[in-house]
Amino acid sequence: MSKAAPFNDGLQLVDVEISLQGAPLISVSATIGEGEVLTVMGASGSGKSTLLAYLGGFLDPAFEASGQVYLKGKDVIQLPAEARQMGILFQDPLLFPHMSVGGNLLFAVPQSIKGKAGRKALVLEALENAGLADYFNRDPATLSGGQKARIALMRVLLAKPRALLLDEPFSKLDAGRRDHIRQFVFNEARARKLPILLVTHDQADADAAGGEIFHLSGE
């Protein structure tokens, strides 16, 4: 019954297969160590975002999926999305528009951390880290694209994820900012020893990530 012995740290995909109405889209097995990046490349429509949806727990029920996903040795597919501790960054920063920048970050701080002052201190530290120290009360709509991207990353990291899923998070940034933000994301993730699954169609993303590359062939 059991497949390859679960690997104790990092993220492991075992025989993950996703199909739509019987037509296979993706078939992948891979191991991503702590602080490592697996880049999944493919043209749009190749189903690369579907893979992230399966891992993140928000796959559209129209798809059929099978296979195990182990995070630090534990199968996460049976868990509901919110219990998987998989942080996600999308193409858009998706800061919650009804909350302040600080509110967005406070929303992410785990509930197990009690006490208003302590929670806020974590948020202020993250803002400092992102070079946006005075931005606690700002309306997210007033931030630049690069600033939003950094807040979105800080928000994911504050939730103490055990893996990071990146869905072309750099593609909408302007060229000048892109390298900078890319380095920022990878450095922060490596510092926390997070396994990263990056899906992209941009070769420069794959080069910057530096890890293994998996090509999806789907049309």
């Binding site: 949806a53 993140g56 727990g57 928000f58 509901p80 999305a81 919110e82 219990a83 998987r84 501790q85 998989m86 942080g87 996600i88 999308f90 858009d92 998706l94 919650f96 929303f107 992410a108 785990p110 509930q111 928000r155 994911v156 504050l158 939730a159 994820p161 899923l165």
Partner: peptide, 19 residues
């Protein structure tokens, strides 16, 4: 409603009710 907002919230550990 953009469902990715909910995906982000779940990714941050927020359950269905809190979301």
């Amino acid at each position: 409603f953009d469902p990715r907002f909910a995906s982000v919230a779940h990714g941050l550990g927020s359950g269905l009710n809190r979301t």
